[in-house]
Write a protein that binds this DNA or RNA. Structure first.
Lengths: 232, 232
DNA sequence: AGAGAATACGAGCGATCGCTCACATTTTTC
DNA sequence: GAAAAATGTGAGCGATCGCTCGTATTCTCT
């Protein structure tokens, strides 16, 4: 009972010396996660790599989880700085320009520390609804949602919430995986260009394909396409 | 040295009894992963939940990793069954029909065991290049790539490889996250409809936005935004 | 029925983990 | 410069982990 908030440092450092210690610990944590993976992420090892004793680590982080949380917070703050700057700068430019700029900013964000980003988002267990990445995700959705709303008349989608979801997920997924799978296309700008085209087409063109009246439906007419035969 | 292949059962079961044991173990493994997460995935616990002793577990799986591998193989086999069936059935239907059917099949696949799928793809560490999900990913890319190639004339993209990548990632990411974030839109078919529209627009429409000549460039004029797309 | 093969059991070994605590060292305060 | 506060140390505790191995049970075959 009376449990400490597991996601906050147990003691606020006051001297410059301890600030350096905390930074060394967080830095070592990132280094170990990137180089050896989450399986090797132990508090003893982190302390070693930071050139500090385990005791010092536990003076500032009540448990392993909180160290992970702090690392996430710092990394996300790094990402968000660039995104905020771009969002503030684009203002009332034409929609294609805005979309392109936002995507380019996301690409830039993913190039800040790609290896760490990958580990944090694929190997590290989520810390529940209070997780920093969850909050970041929500802010991102809100930002995109506000942007789309302000251009509502130029946008040809039925459900703006759904469109927001699709845009956010598509941008994140395509760029994130491209960091390891298609680094050349990322660096050349090809990813930015194509994703921009992908989203602009979706957001601004009403008729799906340029041809025929109602091309999609009646595809899987024969059977209900809900849940298929539930196995086991 | 002379290490066993960590991803294969150490002994082929021959009696019906042992087959049941193996199934019970794999089933319990899935149940624990889904209910308690990867952190609680210990061989002792799995054996307990399967109503079997640890010794029996290690009679068929040389280590914890191999149990995880077998679980992945079985789950992916479940997914792939439905996808193969649809791919074989669509044949030479119009492109919009094919795209819609493939996406619908992916939605159906994600509804087979959503919770397990989520844990396997977000919390469980990858087992290296021999991982079953890596092989599955490669087969998926090859399938989509073949499909796009066979309709090359209808498709208005420069780089077919890049387009394949974008299609695969977009479909997977939007559907996968929708399972937990937008279950209603998944069930109603809204996701299927919108993703179909998104991809068809990208694949078949050449000009980005319907308006103006060259809408995108000169967006972030102030600073270089990486190498510009080399005009052919 | 009896023997050998296949299967199942589970106490417990060695390793490692997260974390504590009694104590040493450095910095600040007065 | 001495007391107090802040910071740093690391051996080691209790828990848990992956996994082994000697033994008990069940099946197959003749």
């Amino acid at each position: 009972m009376a449990r400490l908030d597991a996601s906050r440092p147990r003691k606020r450092p006051s001297q410059a010396r301890s600030h350096a210690t905390v930074d060394a610990i967080v830095g070592a944590a990132a280094r170990i996660l990137v180089r050896d993976g989450y399986g090797a992420f132990t508090t003893n090892r982190v302390a070693d790599a930071a050139g500090v004793s385990v005791g010092s680590l536990y003076q500032y982080f009540p448990n392993k989880e909180s160290l992970l949380a702090e690392l996430k917070v710092r990394h996300i703050a790094d990402l968000e700085r660039g995104l905020d700057a771009v969002m503030a700068r684009v203002g009332d430019a034409p929609l294609p320009v805005i979309v392109h700029a936002v995507i380019a900013a996301n690409v830039a964000a993913h190039l800040i520390d790609p290896a760490l980003h990958r580990v944090l988002s694929t190997e590290v267990p989520q810390l529940g609804p209070s997780d920093a990445s969850t909050a970041f995700e929500q802010r991102t959705v809100a930002r995109v949602r506000a942007l789309l709303t302000s251009r509502r008349r130029e946008i040809a989608v039925r459900d703006l919430d759904l469109a927001t979801y699709l845009v956010v997920r598509t941008v994140e997924a395509t760029i994130h995986e491209a960091v390891v799978e298609r680094p050349n296309d990322l660096a050349s700008g090809a990813i930015t260009r194509e994703v921009t085209r992908l989203l602009l087409g979706y957001l601004t063109v009403s008729s799906p394909a340029g041809r025929g009246p109602s091309p999609v439906p009646s595809a899987s007419r024969g059977r209900p396409r809900g849940r298929r035969a539930p196995r086991r």
